[in-house]
Design a protein around this nucleic acid. Structure first.
Lengths: 250, 250
DNA sequence: ACCTGTGAAGATTTTCACAGCA
DNA sequence: TGCTGTGAAAATCTTCACAGGT
């Protein structure tokens, strides 16, 4: 926290840019694993399915340090984006709901992106006291959730009818950042300040998807190096984080 | 399809509006189940966590027919939004990956939003030939995916390393709408036209969430009837579909 | 020759504010 | 009085285009 060595521009990062940066980070990590040390903005942009121009703009928000005529140092860029997204620090996550969805999440988030599930809650008596993954936390009763605390993020993956209870419990436990992957729309008391809730509803994504498909009209015109071909069409923004595909030109 | 009785305004619906409409639909369905027949825009807006103004604007895109001074007929509005999103027609879905994530999705999408999973594919020999849910489809080998077809949407919920293969198979089977819930960035051949891919990466959502929390500065000022209190702050758009919470004023 | 970084133009989306009606 | 529907203003985001460097 506090002042960094060379805090370049205190520019406010646009919302959509944050989502894309997280996306770049993912792609960059893959490049790193494949041993690619340098990447250019056209390369990275096509890999992420965005315009090279907006990629450069996004990177400019976090003070990118690429080499003109060459590109970006992958490792260095990973560090920079991680820092901007606060992913260099590890966040502790509590997961409510140890059903299929919860278990999938447990495996999904453990990939190593700075998030560790340190607590697991469920109502199922058969699950309480057991461990779902190697080295993972022991499942506790949902009732005890509100009594504990100390997590940075709470993930709600319960059944729909228990989502609100889990939400209330998290708030009581002092958890302010919630990711809700149930189909329930959560209610938050007005008194509670600073709460950030993020909702991911897969059924909703299906609806948006099928709508986009029915209305995909014209292909985007790329003047830069973007050979944008398939897809796109409508939904210019939508969830920026929720619409990328690699288009590795042959 | 084709011309409807009174196709009001051929206005193009903005991308973010589509996501929000799907959200309203969900909330409206809940109202319907609770026996609430009429709802006003301030009510619905607070329930969906959006400004009443933008709600009305969104509804205006689909030719809303509310009663001034009163509100909207819930049942009628459900019908209208469903029609606009093409959810009144049932879409067939093929699901690749019958692991925990796939199973969770199978239960999730079956809620009855116009999507039915009619085919299920996986590589696990132990799963092939079995049925995962009552009345659900029998699990088939992933290799047979490309040979079949006829689905409106393909959902990719395999392990990360098999996601690309599933994507290729879907495209070969003629499926143009894909929802990818793995952390893999898919590559699509340039030749394939009209492909719409939607990506949902939960690890990415966590990153965006934690960033938003670190940068939530000032509370939004609502001049209409919006008592916007908690949350919001930055990320004005982000995934509009991925950030709603009820704020039922007491 | 090629790529980065960014001001400025352009496109899109959200919010405002008010006319119109029950 | 209360709410809908919508043109117009404001805010936001994306794309362009080019200076600057290697």
């Amino acid at each position: 926290m506090t002042a960094l060595p060379h805090a370049h521009a205190p520019t406010r990062i646009p919302g959509p840019a944050v989502a894309r940066l997280a996306l770049y980070l993912h792609v960059l990590r893959n490049y790193n694993l494949r041993g690619i040390a340098v990447v250019s903005s056209p390369q990275l942009a096509t890999a992420a399915g965005v315009n090279p121009a907006i990629l450069r703009k996004d990177l400019s928000y976090i003070g990118a340090n690429g080499v003109r005529g060459v590109g970006y140092d992958v490792a260095k860029l990973i560090g920079r984006v991680s820092m901007a997204l606060h992913t260099d620090d590890t966040h502790s996550v509590a997961l409510a709901g140890a059903g299929r969805l919860g278990q999938a999440l447990l495996a999904h988030t453990g990939v190593g992106r700075g998030f560790t599930v340190t607590a697991l809650f469920d109502d199922d008596p058969a699950l309480i006291g057991t461990t779902l993954s190697d080295g993972g936390p022991v499942v506790e009763s949902l009732d005890t959730l509100a009594l504990a605390g100390g997590w940075d993020i709470g993930v709600i993956a319960t059944s729909d009818d228990r989502a609100q209870a889990a939400c209330d419990a998290f708030l009581e436990a002092g958890v302010r950042q919630l990711l809700n992957v149930t189909a329930t729309t959560l209610q938050v008391r007005l008194e509670t300040p600073g709460v950030v809730i993020r909702q991911v509803d897969l059924a909703l994504e299906l609806q948006v998807l099928s709508f986009q498909a029915k209305h995909a009209p014209d292909r985007p015109t790329g003047s830069d190096a973007n050979t944008g071909s398939e897809e796109s069409g409508s939904a210019p923004s939508g969830s920026a984080a929720a619409r990328y595909r690699e288009t590795m030109t042959s």
